[in-house]
Amino acid sequence: MNFSQIARPLCLTSLLLASPAAFAGPSPQGEWRVADGTATIRVHRCGAAFCGNIATTITPAGKDIHNPDPRKRNRTVLGIEVLYALRATGPNAWSGYSYNAQDGQTYTITVSLASATTLRVQGCVPGGGACGGETWTRAR
């Protein structure tokens, strides 16, 4: 058996066993400043998807008073998960859900990397409600 007969199966096996992250392109991971500058959201991997939590606020963090679950209305907004189940839908694009602590609503969203330093977030109220969007800038 020569080297190429041994090396080819080893290379193919290595490719098959490599983690999916090895093939991943750009991702939304990082810390992003929301459009009005009042908070940053830390986007991270959560299983096969991405999630995001409120990392910082420029004023003392308020309470989640608009949450539809009365048991959660006294919790601080700092650290709560506001983006979840973001899954790739194409190059530099993901879709999932966003919880907005300012109105207690959950939105379906699409997130796309407009550049290495800008993240476009667009959302709609499920069921055909109002839609809107904003651009976040990379904080870290």
Rank of each mutant, 00 (worst) to 15 (best):
Y99D: 04
S95G: 06
A101T: 12
G90S: 03
R71Q: 15
R73F: 03
A88W: 04
G90E: 01
A88Y: 02
V111M: 12
D69Q: 06
K72C: 09
V77N: 08
V111I: 14
N74W: 09
K63A: 13
D64Y: 03
S98A: 14
L83S: 07
G104F: 09
P68D: 08
T59K: 14
C51H: 07
D103C: 03
I80L: 08
A101N: 07
F50G: 06
P60D: 10
P70Y: 02
A93M: 10
Q105M: 13
W94S: 05
I54Q: 09
A88T: 12
L83V: 03
T106W: 06
E81D: 05
T106Y: 03
E81M: 11
T59E: 14
L78Y: 10
T57H: 00
A93K: 15
T108A: 00
V82Y: 01
P70I: 00
T110N: 15
Y84C: 12
N92Q: 12
I80V: 13
T57S: 07
K63T: 13
S98V: 11
P60H: 02
I65V: 14
Q102E: 14
A88D: 06
T108S: 11
R75P: 00
P70N: 06
N100L: 04
T57L: 01
N92T: 06
A88S: 14
A88I: 06
S98C: 08
T110M: 12
K63D: 06
R73T: 08
F50V: 05
T59F: 11
A85T: 13
L83F: 15
T106H: 02
R75F: 04
R75Y: 10
T106R: 10
T56E: 09
V82D: 01
N100V: 05
D69C: 04
N67P: 04
P60T: 07
N100M: 04
T110A: 15
S95H: 08
T110Y: 03
S95Y: 05
N74P: 01
I65F: 13
V82F: 00
E81P: 08
A85D: 15
T56C: 02
I54S: 06
T108G: 11
N53H: 10
T56D: 01
F50L: 08
L78N: 07
R73M: 10
T89W: 11
S95M: 08
R73A: 03
T106Q: 04
N67S: 02
G96A: 07
T76N: 12
D103H: 08
A101S: 13
A61N: 00
N92D: 13
P68G: 05
F50M: 05
G62M: 00
A101R: 04
P70W: 05
Y84F: 14
G62V: 05
T76Q: 12
Y97D: 10
K63N: 12
R73C: 03
F50W: 12
Q105T: 13
N100D: 15
C51S: 02
P60A: 10
G96S: 05
R71S: 15
I65E: 13
N92S: 09
